[in-house]
Design a binder for these strands. Structure first.
Length: 687
RNA sequence: GCGAGAGUGGCGGAACUGGCAGACGCGCAGGGCUUAGAAUCCUGUGGGGAAACCCGUGCGGGUUCGACUCCCGCCUCUCGCACCA
C-alpha cells in the first residue's frame, strides 16, 4: 500500500481524545466527542499515517448500488462520502494583480446573485491581502472562531453566524461588479477551497448572514418564467425570512436570463472554463483515514526510521521477509505515561533496530494502527487462518468470497462497514482476492434495551447480562428469548416475563417428549397422512424457510404450534414419534442443548448438528381439503370445507349451500362471484 | 432542514405476491390439582351489544368484488446527517 501511495505520512490537524490519549479518525468522532468514551475531542497537530480512502470515494459510492444492504446504512455511507459536484471559479481581487479567491459552488446558476465572498477566517489570502489596519482584528477574529469551535465541539449545535469585513474587494467575474470579501465563522477551511461566493437570495446561510450584516441581496432565480409568480414567492419568502433555494429560471443574469437552473449551471460552467477562470470540481465530505494511534494494543506500523538513509523522516518499509512486526511481550502498565506518548517508544529493546537499507542503527515507528484496520479484513483471514505466508490464499478467497450474509450493528455504518469495503477494494487491487465488495447482504441486528427501555449502558447502570438468564434458566432459554422477542433487525426491550415464557416452552417440549416415550417406544414408523404428519411436514417446510430468511421469531412460534399439536395428539404413535423427532431436529439450531438431550432420550446417538436437515415430504405438505372463507359483498359470512380437487363451480356451489351464507344470498341477485382457490369465495350481490 | 424507517389488542409481535386481521408468546380472568403455595394443566381474552350483528390495523380521501398491504394528502414517533457552499 505504501508503494502504491495508498498509505502516506502527513502532518495534519487531527482529532485527539485527551482521556483515551489517542488520535481518532473522522469517523470516530460523534458530535465532537470520542466514540469510545464520549470526551470532547480536541484538535492537535501531530504527524500521522493515513490511508488514502478518498481515492476510493467514487468506487465506494458505485459499489453501494450493487450490494443488498439496508437502505439506512447505504444512505449513511452515501451521506458520509458526501460527493458534491460543482464548479471552482475565481473571483479576482481588486488591486492585487494575479490574486483571486477561488470558490467552490454547486449553484453556478446563481452566480449573478453573488454579492460578497465569504472566506474561512484562516484562509491564506486573508492575512496576505487585508489592509494593514485590519490585520490584527482579523487575526483576533480567527482566534476567537477557533476557540469557540473547540468549546462547542465541531459539528455540535452551530454557533451564531459571525463575520468580519476584511476590507478586501473582489470582482464578481460575471456581473463585473465590485463586491466585498468577508471572513465568516461558518466557512470551513477544510472543505472545498475555503471560500464561497455568497448568494443571499438563494442560499439560506448566506441570507441570514447578509441580513445580519446588511449586505445586498439580489434575486436572480425565480420559480416560474412569470413575473407575478416571482413577486408572490418573493414576498412570502421575505415574510418567512427565507432564501429561495429551489431551482427555477434565471433573470437579471445577462445572456443566461431565461434559462432553467440546470441548464444555466452547465452553460455558466462552460463559459467560466472557456474564459480560463474556472473548471468543474468535485468535493467529498470523506477524509483520508488517519490510522496512527498512541496505544499499545494495535498492529505495529511496519516502518523504520533511519537518520542516514531517510533524513526526511519519511519512513522505510520493513522488508517482506521480516513481517509481521509483532508487539513486544511487556507489562503494558510500565510504559504508560498517561501523556499520550506511544507506549512502544519506551521499549528500547523493541524500538531500536537496524536499518533494512544500510544496516545502521534505526528506530521503529512506535505508533500502532487503529484497531479498525484489523477488523477491516479479519473476515477473510477466517478462510485460511494457518497461512503464514499470506493473509489468505487466493484459492480460498475465490472459493468463499464474498460473504453471503454479514450481520452487524448499524452503529458501524460509517466506521467498520466503510473501512471493510475500502479494504476489500484494496485487497482486490493487490490481487489478493477477486471481489470488490466484501459482503453481498448485510443484516443489521437491533439492540437489546435494558429493563427501563433505554439503551443499555454502564453509566446508566441498566445493563442486563445474558449471564443472568443463563445462570437461572440456561443458555437455551437465553437464546430463545433473544430470538423470539422481535425480528432480528429490530431493537427489543428486555422482558423478564418473556424470558419465563421461553423457559416454559422448553419445559413443555421436555414433558411432551418424556410423556410420549412409553407410547412411541414400540411404535412402527410413521405412515399414511394423518393430521399430525401433515402438520409436521408443513412445519419442516416453514421453519426451514423462516431460518433462511432469519425470521427466528416466527420460526420459534411455528415450533410452538407443532409442539402444542403434538401434546393434543390422540392418534397413531408412529406419527407422534416422527413429530417429536422432527421437533428436536428443528429446535437444534435455536436451543441446541435441549434438542440434543431430547434426541438422545429418543434413543438416537448422533450429534444433531452432524445430521442432515430434515426434509418435508411433498405429498404431506398438500392438504386434500381446505377451509374456505365465504364472503358476501366482501364481508365474512361463513366458512365451508371443500376438497382440494374441487373446481371453481363446485366451490361456488358448496359455498352458496352453506346455511348461513344462503341466508345472506336469499332474495338477492348475484352479480359476480370471485373464487380464489384454497382461500375464499366472494359473492357480489345487489338488491 | 435533509435522508431512512416505523405506526396493528393491555404488552412483544403475526399476516406469502391485494384474499378469513390479531398466529405465537406475555399479561389478565375463571377453573382443575394442592392443607396451602410454587410448578403445572384446562377454558376465556380487540372494542360495542342480551343477541342478530356492528365497528376496528395513526388520520382523511381514492383504486378494487375485496386494502394492514397499492395510490394521493396529512399527523406522530424512532434513527442517522446537518453551517459541506
Amino acid at each position: 500500500m505504501l508503494e502504491r501511495g495508498l498509505v502516506y505520512r502527513r502532518r495534519a490537524k487531527v482529532n485527539y481524545c485527551p482521556v483515551d490519549n489517542t488520535v481518532l479518525a473522522n469517523e470516530q468522532v460523534e458530535d465532537g466527542r470520542c466514540w469510545r468514551c464520549g470526551t470532547l475531542v480536541i484538535e492537535r497537530e501531530i504527524p500521522e499515517w493515513a490511508f488514502r480512502i478518498t481515492a476510493y470515494a467514487d468506487r465506494l459510492l458505485d459499489g453501494l448500488t450493487r450490494i443488498d444492504w439496508p437502505e439506512r446504512v447505504v444512505a449513511m455511507q452515501r451521506n458520509w462520502i458526501g460527493r458534491s459536484d460543482g464548479l471552482e471559479i475565481e473571483f479576482p481581487v481588486i488591486g492585487a494583480r494575479g490574486k483571486a479567491f477561488r470558490v467552490f459552488t454547486t449553484r453556478a446558476d446563481t452566480i449573478f446573485g453573488a454579492t460578497y465572498v465569504a472566506a474561512a477566517p484562516d484562509h491564506p489570502l486573508i492575512q496576505q491581502l487585508a489592509p494593514e489596519a485590519k490585520r490584527e482584528q482579523l487575526h483576533a477574529f480567527a482566534e476567537r472562531v477557533r476557540r469557540t469551535a473547540k468549546e462547542v465541539g465541531e459539528g455540535a449545535q452551530a454557533a451564531d453566524k459571525e463575520g468580519f469585513d476584511t476590507g478586501i474587494r473582489a470582482r464578481n467575474p460575471f456581473t463585473g461588479k465590485e463586491i466585498p470579501v468577508w471572513v465568516a465563522n461558518f466557512v470551513l477551511a477544510s472543505y472545498g477551497t475555503g471560500a464561497v461566493m455568497s448568494v443571499p437570495a438563494h442560499d439560506q446561510r448566506d441570507y441570514e448572514f447578509a441580513v445580519k450584516y446588511d449586505l445586498p441581496i439580489k434575486w436572480v432565480i425565480r420559480p416560474g418564467e412569470d413575473d407575478e409568480v416571482t413577486q408572490v414567492a418573493a414576498r412570502k419568502l421575505v415574510e418567512e425570512k427565507k432564501a429561495f433555494t429551489d431551482h427555477g429560471y434565471l433573470f437579471d443574469s445577462g445572456e443566461f436570463s431565461g434559462m432553467p437552473s440546470e441548464q444555466a449551471r452547465l452553460t455558466i460552467a462552460a463559459e467560466a472554463q472557456r474564459r480560463g477562470i474556472g473548471q468543474p470540481a468535485v468535493n467529498y465530505h470523506l477524509r483520508d483515514w488517519g490510522v496512527s494511534r498512541q496505544r499499545y494494543w494495535g498492529t505495529p506500523i511496519p516502518i523504520v526510521y533511519c537518520v542516514k538513509c531517510d533524513p526526511d523522516h519519511k519512513g522505510i518499509p520493513v522488508p517482506d521477509e521480516d513481517l509481521p512486526v509483532v508487539l513486544p511481550d511487556i507489562d503494558v502498565k510500565e510504559v504508560l505515561t498517561g501523556k499520550g506518548e506511544p507506549p512502544l517508544a519506551k521499549v528500547a529493546s523493541w524500538v531500536n533496530t537496524t536499518c533494512p537499507t544500510c544496516g545502521g542503527p534505526a528506530r521503529r515507528e512506535a505508533e500502532t494502527m487503529d484497531t479498525f484496520v484489523d477488523s477491516a479484513w479479519y473476515f477473510a483471514r477466517y478462510l485460511d487462518p494457518h497461512n503464514d505466508a499470506l493473509p489468505f490464499s487466493r484459492a480460498q478467497a475465490d472459493r468463499w468470497l464474498p460473504v453471503d450474509v454479514y450481520v452487524g450493528g448499524p452503529e458501524h455504518a460509517v466506521l467498520h462497514l466503510l473501512y471493510f469495503r475500502f479494504w476489500t477494494m484494496v485487497m482486490n487491487e493487490l490481487a489478493l482476492c477477486g471481489i470488490t465488495e466484501p459482503a453481498q447482504k448485510l443484516v443489521t441486528q437491533g439492540i437489546v434495551k435494558g429493563r427501563d427501555g433505554e439503551k443499555m449502558s454502564k453509566s446508566k447502570g441498566n445493563v442486563v447480562s445474558p449471564r443472568e438468564i443463563i445462570d437461572e434458566y440456561g443458555a437455551d432459554t437465553a437464546r430463545l428469548f433473544i430470538l423470539f422477542a422481535a425480528p432480528a433487525e429490530k431493537d427489543m426491550d428486555w422482558s423478564d416475563e418473556q424470558v419465563q415464557g421461553q423457559h416454559r416452552f422448553l419445559g413443555r417440549v421436555w414433558r411432551l417428549v418424556h410423556s410420549s416415550l412409553p407410547k412411541i417406544q414400540a411404535a412402527k414408523g410413521a405412515e399414511g397422512a394423518d393430521d399430525l404428519r401433515r402438520r409436521t411436514h408443513k412445519t419442516i417446510l416453514r421453519v426451514t424457510q423462516q431460518l433462511e430468511r432469519l425470521q427466528f421469531n416466527t420460526a420459534i412460534s411455528s415450533l410452538m404450534e407443532l409442539s402444542n399439536a403434538a401434546a393434543d395428539w390422540q392418534g397413531e404413535a408412529g406419527s407422534l414419534r416422527e413429530c417429536v423427532e422432527v421437533l428436536a431436529q428443528l429446535l437444534a439450531p435455536l436451543a441446541p442443548h435441549m434438542a440434543n438431550e431430547l434426541w438422545h432420550e429418543l434413543g438416537r446417538s448422533e450429534e444433531l448438528s452432524t445430521l442432515h436437515w430434515p426434509e418435508a415430504d411433498p405429498s404431506l405438505v398438500m392438504d386434500d381439503a381446505y377451509q374456505i372463507a365465504v364472503q358476501v359483498n366482501g364481508k365474512l359470512r361463513g366458512e365451508v370445507q371443500v376438497a382440494a380437487t374441487a373446481g371453481e363451480a363446485e366451490i361456488r356451489d358448496t359455498a352458496a349451500r352453506d346455511p348461513k351464507v344462503a341466508g345472506w344470498l336469499h332474495g338477492k341477485t348475484i352479480k359476480k362471484v370471485v373464487v380464489i382457490p384454497k382461500r375464499l369465495v366472494n359473492f357480489v350481490v345487489a338488491g
